[in-house]
């Protein structure tokens, strides 16, 4: 994160881009490594969840809205990217595939961003619980539509998606997500997100258009959820509509809250911990989900500001 020492803003600007390039290069190098299949799978889950949690954090954490529909955006991205790959990439010559994969991911992100725009519009008028239920409803509507769409396998799911997702792709894109969210928020422009969260009336009196910020947060957040969806599709090679239900959205919300809303690094860390937790609990798999539920309750009692929320920026 950027330091707050006097006259630090310009230097922080250049540093961030260098970090991003380094992180992306490291991720690509990782792709060439040989890993145990199980660990590799878990690592990709971790990366995908980082993207999901960090992007939701822009909406719920920084901008102070309450979206329960992130799985819906993820589904839109996953199905769009997977369908694109099945139609175009599979028939394409080998060297063109990475390019086509990138196109598929970006396309998935773009369509998800469009749906984010569609959900962001009601946020012009709705707040709190009402917004939460609309986003929840949006996620469910997406799921129902997918469930009935023969072109993407309907209820039986979409099978045979090529396995293009690698560790490199996952972490390079996770790095990009973190970079985008951190850069956005850590700018004069980006202080507007937090201003809108803290006090919408005061923000608009300072010339900040709350609607624009909220919709931007939704669009950017949805875009990356869509990217995560695309990675997920080409990692699992199979998509079932039930995988994107309300519970998936809750999982992502829990990551954001566990991390401490509005802290990118902590939220990313929470995504790592919560992805690994079920794996660690595998020996007691019978009680796994019960423990998960108890963890949520216990956490809210003991550390509602987030497990990894250190420092003074308190969440209201």
């Amino acid at each position: 994160m950027f330091s707050r020492s006097p006259l630090s803003l310009p230097t922080a600007c250049q540093g961030a881009k260098r970090w991003l390039i380094a992180a992306v290069l490291c991720s690509i190098l990782l792709s060439f490594g040989q890993f145990n299949r199980y660990y590799l799978g878990v690592a990709m889950d971790v990366g995908i969840n980082i993207i999901l949690a960090v992007s939701l954090n822009l909406i719920n954490g920084y901008t102070g809205q309450f979206s329960l529909g992130h799985a819906g955006f993820m589904a839109v991205g996953a199905y769009t990217a997977a369908k694109f790959s099945l139609v175009f990439a599979v028939a394409a010559p080998e060297p063109a595939r990475p390019v086509l994969f990138l196109v598929a991911l970006v396309l998935g992100g773009a369509v998800a961003a469009l749906s984010g725009l569609a959900v962001g519009i009601p946020s012009l008028r709705l707040k709190g619980d009402y917004l939460a239920i609309v986003t929840l409803g949006f996620g469910e509507i997406i799921r129902v539509i997918v469930q009935n769409l023969e072109a993407v396998g309907a209820a039986s799911g979409l099978k045979g998606i090529p396995k293009y997702t690698t560790l490199g792709w996952t972490f390079a894109l996770a790095s990009v997500t973190v970079y985008v969210v951190v850069s956005l928020v850590n700018s004069t422009y980006g202080r507007g997100f937090i201003a809108v969260k803290d006090d919408e009336v005061a923000a608009s009196s300072m010339g900040i258009n709350p609607v624009r910020y909220k919709v931007t947060a939704f669009v950017v957040g949805a875009f990356f959820a869509g990217i995560a969806g695309g990675l997920y599709a080409h990692h699992k090679q199979f998509l079932a509509p039930t995988g994107f239900d309300f519970l998936k959205s809750i999982d992502i919300v829990v990551m954001v809250i566990l991390g401490g809303m509005g802290r990118t690094a902590s939220v990313a860390l929470a995504a790592v911990v919560l992805t690994l937790l079920p794996e660690v609990l595998r020996p007691v798999s019978e009680y796994r989900m019960i423990l998960y539920a108890l963890l949520i309750i216990g956490l809210m009692m003991a550390r509602p500001q987030g497990l990894f929320a250190f420092g003074r920026r308190a969440v209201k």
């Binding site: 989900m289 539920a293 108890l294 949520i296 309750i297 809210m300 009692m301």
Partner: peptide, 23 residues
């Protein structure tokens, strides 16, 4: 125990309770 906490905290707890009962 969470009466004076932010509503979001209680909401998440409620989700936790729901999951606990279901599982």
């Amino acid at each position: 125990p969470l009466r004076s906490r932010p509503k979001l905290t209680v909401l998440i707890t409620a989700i936790g309770v729901s999951l606990f009962i279901e599982y």
